[in-house]
Nucleic acid binder design. Structure first.
Lengths: 241, 241, 241, 241
DNA sequence: CATGAATGAGCCTTCATTCAT
DNA sequence: CATGAATGAAGGCTCATTCAT
């Protein structure tokens, strides 16, 4: 472990540094392999073969397979955040609906395109199924800020739609999840969609209509008189007026 | 493979048959182990130990580890369908909103209850991340009928809300996915919710409020004048007030 | 580890049991290899090759390399104790000098011949240089009883030689160590003896004269008036009367 | 190998030479690491880390790991001989008993002090267990002169005790070994002593009493009438009163 | 039929060593 | 000259699978 190169040290290196190049090739190859078969199925041999590096290079640069995994994860997380900055999608002064649209769009783009070859998302997805400690990190550094941003948007929208109404945390959360759920569905259920509705699989050319639909669907729901008419409590099941 | 016992043969056996009992114990144990660590991480030794069976028993009953996996999958798929029959959730004659509510509720229950009986859901989830041929089977026999049922409900609702409007397949699909997405979010993103909003993780005691929210949210969205105002085509990006 | 076979279970097996045979071959081969290069240098592959067994057999029978090592150690310790029972070397009623002679003889025999191929001693020796937890076990089960036996003999001899003198523990220990030291020298320093005095290396044909010398040397020392004239304390360095 | 620096060349360098300093640091660090875990367990990386030198430095200064080992060995052998010159322990004109005492004392000091300056003794000990070609060198340059010195002392003592008796080489050797055996026991069996008689482990504060005991014990034995009563031949086994 | 032992491939890791700077 | 990166060979261990009973 002590042989693992200092991360900042590595980051400081010029791009042209041959060492950094190997490190980068390793990172890219690992992303692919991890995405294809998961952490367990991935073999360092396969990764090294694709990166045209020696088996020992991984242990030199990243300490061990785990270290490589974490490095890949962070790499792709930061890339996604750089390319599709969710919180900056819309100016904070924009009206809430525009910010919602920006949010949905950014999230969809990120899911479709995240990472250079779309591996980042696949790896994240695996974390859902078999969480490791990197998921904790992701939850803290990526997901929570993102959710908080959406919560703020949702709160604005609900306050506009229901002036004077006091909003509970549960109400805001449920609306937030309804929006996120719609978006991530296209990522999570992609293998299924490929099999039952190949035409609707999220691609570049249908990303914007899908974003528009989700935005409108959600705006309509939030603005409806009913959206808060029913408290999240049980009595909500009684017939509506 | 030639040593694999004929399945119907096995099914025909009396319940009391010790062979059938072993088979069943194997199935239960395998479900647990597969759910806990995934196909790859699961070891036949661990499964056999829990099932109190011999290492070779798996190969006798199921041919190999793969065969066992498929058997487990089918077993739990059929169980879920028996317990929470989604298509039968509401009488076909019920009004569409009631059928929607039944659908959402059944789906949530199924997702939650999978965990109770040994992780059928967890295993299915893994298929999303790393599809095998059993996912094809699932898509055909389980998901497609379920989606078609929801599509029918959505169609009814949209027709009620927008009489005279000609609905495109895309419109119906997008609405359908918006509903399913909201529901499955609680399953797919559970590990994340546990980390960022532990209070909102789907449990028995908040299942019904969640179902109610999703139903109301979706109904409001569908009934809104705007829900179809924008066609799924690109022009939807024109500025709205 | 859980897969390691129960030891008593293995011991109960008939000698003819093929499983026990493999186990035994493994044990013998391991003894050789461990003796030749030490624990670290020994490779399971080499051991298995010599035992004509598969690499995985070791892990099946002994859990891991460590387990095999411990098993080898115990095997040879118990063999040595069976063949050259030190405490039984002489009847407890024999005169102390005879018991001393028996002790020395047994210890020399054991060192020369211990284990089937003399590996047991080599392995024990390595423990001295690089102690592992098996040395603790050996110290408890083998060395301590042996030393206690010798201590008793020494005490008898000293009491005979110095009637009325109160013996301290230190006095007895120092004499005990002087005897053991003479004996084990032939084992410990064998590689050196081979180089500087090849004629004196302990072999079967000179074992008895060596034993006789050590016995007489020690008896003479113990019986001498001076042997206790000097207390082990510092003042002992003053000139003797 | 061709890259290995000439040793005299290195020795000729001024002390202040950074290259010589590195070489020295490497030597010290290697001594520690070799002593701690043996040749095999020692890694060049660990040695270089402790010496704050580059991984390749070892190969530059010593050719390879083996070369380093030999260098360390020679370094510490010469140091020991400088500090505790055994053959010079007593003036050749001193009476034999005094010379014996000096010898025993010097040997004990050497064994104990090895540990202080970084484990020359520990490394030597390992050679006993797993001799390499450096042991040959040691036997020639260190052990043989030392043994010859003791042999001379023993011969003097025996001649004093048994005037007129013709001494055989075997007789002298056996007595010599009996003395050396007593001394080195405290080094060789130290790990065992730590476990069975922690109070008697050789330390600075009990070194002199131990030396005194060994000296007296041996003197008494040698001077006894019996010490040569039995020739090293077989008839020695005849019963004695 | 069912069991315990055996098999061989493959994985992660570590190490001494060498090669371009 | 000295450095940091790269190399390839093992090593211990695990696993699914298959034999003989």
């Amino acid at each position: 472990m002590s042989a693992v190169r200092n991360q900042t040290q590595a980051a400081d290196e010029a791009i042209g540094d041959p060492s950094a190049q190997t490190r980068q090739r390793l990172l890219e190859a690992a992303a692919q392999v991890f995405a294809e078969g998961g952490f367990r199925a991935a073999t360092v041999r396969e990764i090294c073969k694709r990166a045209q590096a020696n088996v020992a290079a991984i242990h030199y640069h990243f300490g061990d397979k785990d270290g490589l995994y974490v490095a890949v994860f962070r790499e792709f997380a930061s890339r996604a955040q750089t390319r599709y900055p969710i919180t900056l999608a819309a100016a904070p002064t924009d009206p809430a609906p525009a910010r919602l649209r920006s949010f949905v769009l950014a999230l969809l783009y990120r899911m479709l395109d995240d990472g250079v070859h779309g591996c980042g998302g696949a790896i994240l997805l695996r974390e859902f199924v078999e969480p490791t400690h990197v998921l904790d990190e992701m939850a803290r550094t990526v997901v929570r800020p993102m959710m908080d941003a959406l919560r703020a948007i949702v709160r604005s929208l609900l306050e506009e739609a229901h002036p004077g109404r006091t909003l509970t945390g549960a109400e805001i959360d449920l609306h937030t999840f309804s929006i996120i759920g719609q978006v991530v569905f296209y990522k999570h259920s992609r293998p299924l969609l490929l099999r039952v509705s190949p035409d609707r699989v999220l691609e570049k050319d249908n990303l914007e209509p899908i974003a528009e639909h989700i935005t409108q669907f959600s705006l309509a729901a939030i603005r409806s008189r009913r959206s808060l008419g029913a408290s999240p409590a049980h009595k909500s099941r009684s017939k509506r007026p």
